[in-house]
């Protein structure tokens, strides 16, 4: 069993608009030597959202953040779950402002020694983020479908 108290390299960024391309996930030589698993997760905007119990088409989502609290909470949670899962390095990037449907609004990259801990980290971190981090989204609705 590996020591689960390693100090992880945690990076957090907020980006205006869609995340067009992944920031290179740079690991140091010592981190690379230990990182047997690197998992990248992209959150993308769907083309529909629920409105009054009905799915309706959207152009995209308007994301709102509350700085510096948003960055602080992202960093705190990333650090907390990194310690729990013996993460070597984690990079969190989230959009603010408008992100059109099909575009990326959230990018999570994590390096661990083994696959399972990286996948579990992604799952648990995202659940925690959705419950605790002040990030809001408001749909920008499409015009009513003329064929409807």
């Amino acid at each position: 069993m590996e020591n689960a108290s390693r100090e992880a390299n945690v990076r957090v960024r907020l980006t205006s608009g869609p995340i067009a391309s992944a920031t290179p996930f740079v690991l140091s030589d010592s981190e690379t030597a230990l990182a047997g698993a690197v998992v990248t997760f992209q959150g993308r905007v769907r083309n529909r959202e629920v409105d009054e119990n009905e799915m309706k088409p959207i152009l995209g989502l308007e994301y709102e953040v509350y700085e510096p609290m948003t960055s602080q909470e992202l960093h705190r949670l990333a650090d907390q779950y990194a310690r729990k899962h013996d993460v070597i390095a984690v990079d969190v990037e989230h959009s603010f402002g408008f992100v059109g449907n099909g575009e990326c609004s959230f990018l999570l990259q994590v390096a661990t020694s083994h696959r399972r801990s990286a996948i579990t980290f992604v799952d648990e971190f995202i659940d925690a983020m959705k419950s605790h981090v002040p990030i809001w989204k408001v749909p920008r609705w499409s015009m009513p479908d003329s064929t409807a």
């Binding site: 602080q72 983020m129 990030i135 989204k137």
Partner: peptide, 26 residues
């Protein structure tokens, strides 16, 4: 002041207060 507050926390004049609800990151 940019930290979640417990139910018994005190808010003073001049504190920055925010309502954090219906959040949905990702």
């Amino acid at each position: 002041n940019h930290e979640f507050a417990a139910a018994d926390s005190l808010i003073n004049a001049g504190d920055e207060v925010a309502l954090v609800g219906l959040i949905s990151g990702g």
